[in-house]
Nucleic acid binder design. Structure first.
Lengths: 166, 166
DNA sequence: TTTCAGTTTGTTACAACATAACATATCAAT
DNA sequence: ATTGATATGTTATGTTGTAACAAACTGAAA
């Protein structure tokens, strides 16, 4: 595992992982639910970077640790992690990412870079407010929202410009 | 085919279908692309109501008309219809709906009712504007956006209230 | 009218994603 | 020790989607 150069904003990813795992551990304790070995391993695998991860990739990567792992093993762990809010499902990719904002926990905007595969979560408060207004106008009661934007992130855009010049 | 009572706003659905097919026919002519029999039949099947339709359901329903139909038959037609903007893929359902706003053609908000399965498209201009601002803030270049909200529509909410009282 | 290129469809096979159903194991509380 | 709740093992299957190549169609140029 390396500190990727692909990340949309360069950062010490070790911190991301540590924070995510510590927070998950604490929240599980508070909620009286179990962060079992399998669940924690899946969470760690998801957090290896900021890419969206496929379920069957997780399955391959967990096999060295859990030789008995089958699809259900992964999907059950994913279900748990989603229910606890530790990860998000990216609907448009059939994939999963770690949640960067465990504490604030509001629904977020996902910016998915097709070039580097990073997914950035953004609270996007202004968007969420106008959405709330729209729901009220429509008389619509929200259970779940997925706001997924595909395109090219700022970092990749800049890289592409640099390459054009060079 | 009946004029459904489930629609989020009661309407003469025959008009929806006619408008969609006429507009599609005209746009294909203008663009020099072919609205073949298969493609038109798939479009008609999708437009039978305002529900999101699954690819394999379309496959079953087109077989009386196209006995040779296979998955690829449907997915090719769907790819074409999406490329022309006549239908949308609903990412969070792995399903497809007819586009209600062929002319204006901007990306829209999808309100997906889990009770009646209707999907309502809304231009939601205020939301789109704050989204655009967010993309600018992030330096993100958008290629495709999916804004999919699951919940209970106004009609079903009202029905549920009425049932509680009765 | 032939021929040629581009497009569409037929066909087979398979890849990728996800769940059902039932058995087994673990573990804390009674 | 028994029980109930939770978690995992295991097998099978269901669902969604694509690759690859062959055949047919279409329209325009030679």
């Amino acid at each position: 595992m390396s500190i990727s150069t692909e990340l949309s904003s360069p950062h010490n990813h070790t911190n991301c992982i540590a924070t995510a795992l510590n927070t998950a551990t604490q929240l599980c304790f508070e909620r009286g639910v179990q962060l079992t070995a399998i669940r924690q391993q899946v969470l760690e695998l998801i957090w290896e970077n900021h890419h969206a991860v496929k379920a069957y990739d997780l399955l391959e990567r967990i096999k060295p640790l859990q030789s008995a792992a089958k699809p259900a093993t992964i999907y059950r762990a994913l279900d748990f992690l989603i229910a606890q809010g530790f990860i998000h499902r990216v609907e448009s990719l059939n994939a999963f990412i770690g949640c960067c904002n465990l504490k604030t926990a509001h629904e977020q905007l996902l910016l998915i870079c097709k070039q580097c595969n990073d997914v950035e979560e953004r609270p996007a408060n202004a968007v969420m407010q106008s959405l709330a207004q729209e729901f009220q106008n429509a008389g619509f009661t929200v259970h779940h929202q997925a706001i997924e934007i595909q395109g090219i992130c700022a970092t990749c855009s800049q890289l592409n410009k640099d390459e054009e010049i060079a």
